[in-house]
Design a protein around this nucleic acid. Structure first.
Lengths: 208, 208
DNA sequence: TATAAATAACTGACCAGTCAGTTATTTATG
DNA sequence: CATAAATAACTGACTGGTCAGTTATTTATA
């Protein structure tokens, strides 16, 4: 393998290793993944991997950190840019198919669920810093809409879970069942229907 | 350990081994679970486990089979006994907290998701014989309600997914985040809200 | 040539599954 | 009933193989 001397080249190599690691973790699970296979996939020797990461677990941690923040920011941007619950819901439902089909989110989620027992502290961090934040954002959105008379939401926290459930579950479905496109679901249509149903369900009793 | 001579005693021992195996698989994952630990938990030696099961994988298969059919039957009984979509939905929403809190379903689901790559054929069987059947049941219920004018359901298959999502996801949530009751959710209230939202969302435009 | 990236052989620990031997329990016999 | 023979449930040391992480050595590049 050509040597990576510059910092730039090393960053590239690091990224290539992370990509290879996610592929392997997703295909085989954390425990069953061999460091030599990650190395092979990145066209390196096993020893070289240890020039970039301290351990197998450190690779996994880097992987989760790499993915959490950009996607969280994307979702929060959509929520803050929206002027109303209606708009926010539309934005989230429109972006969800992309997040599920085009990002590594579903694959990371699957590995995180499956090997959650190995990294209890990481799973808890993922929950409080990503999932609970997204739920809190949706809950806030619902609460504000309720107070503004835009919607009728007796319990914003639980309602937020109901609103988000189809999206989160679809991501996991994609990772678990659809790796060979054997269990395809029309996500665009699914979330379009979901959006309509949620709007109708949340409509105030005396609305237009 | 007292020896199991009768068929009855052997069935009991088999069951004890399966219980121990699920505890271990759930706590450590399939790959990281040692047969000797399963044996220890059931107060037996490692060798004895192989008198009851051919292999680690055979134990896991037995575990999934043991759980799938009784729970599937329960859900289908609720659906067939219900006279209307409203009743069926109420039944499903009422039974769901029990299935999530009182059965091994969430723990099995978590292991199945996490180690899905190890048993692709088992995961596919689980999907087609359990999940798709429950979805088909709900879809049929929705379609009949639509035809009877009880509800307005343009796409029963996708709507079924939206109806079931909070329940399936709550089961996984329970298994992944709530093993130490750190992320508790009031499931009774959650599904009560869900039920109300679904009924309102599915209400025909010109309804009472 | 000096340096650091990369390699590959190596180590030590781990574990699924096996099997020769042990022992609790049942059954046959005086 | 007492006891020995037969049975099969059970044990745990062992094998063969795997793999994370280490290190001595090679090699590309500034």
């Amino acid at each position: 393998m050509l040597r990576a001397r510059s910092d730039e080249a090393k960053d590239e190599r690091r990224q290539a290793l992370l990509t290879a690691a996610l592929d392997e973790f997703f295909e085989k699970g954390f425990a069953a993944t061999r460091m030599s296979d990650i190395a092979k996939r990145a066209h390196l020797s096993k020893g070289a991997v240890y020039l970039y990461f301290d351990s197998k677990e450190a690779m996994f941690r880097a992987l989760v950190e790499n993915l959490a923040s950009p996607n969280l920011e994307l979702i929060e941007r959509i929520a803050t840019n929206a002027g109303s619950l209606r708009e926010a819901l539309a934005g989230v439902c429109r972006i969800a198919p992309m997040l599920i089909r085009q990002t590594d989110l579903p694959r990371i989620m699957k590995v995180l669920v499956g090997d959650s027992h190995m990294f209890p502290q990481m799973v808890q961090a993922y929950r409080t810093e990503l999932i609970e934040r997204v739920l809190a954002m949706m809950s806030g959105l619902l609460k504000r809409a309720h107070d503004a008379g835009e919607a009728e939401v007796p319990n914003p926290d639980l309602t937020a879970r109901i609103v988000m459930a189809p999206m989160v579950l679809s991501a996991l479905w994609e990772a678990v069942f659809n790796s060979r496109h054997e269990a395809d679901v029309d996500l665009d249509q699914l979330f379009q229907i979901h959006e309509r149903m949620m709007l109708k369900a949340l409509e105030p009793r005396s609305a237009t």
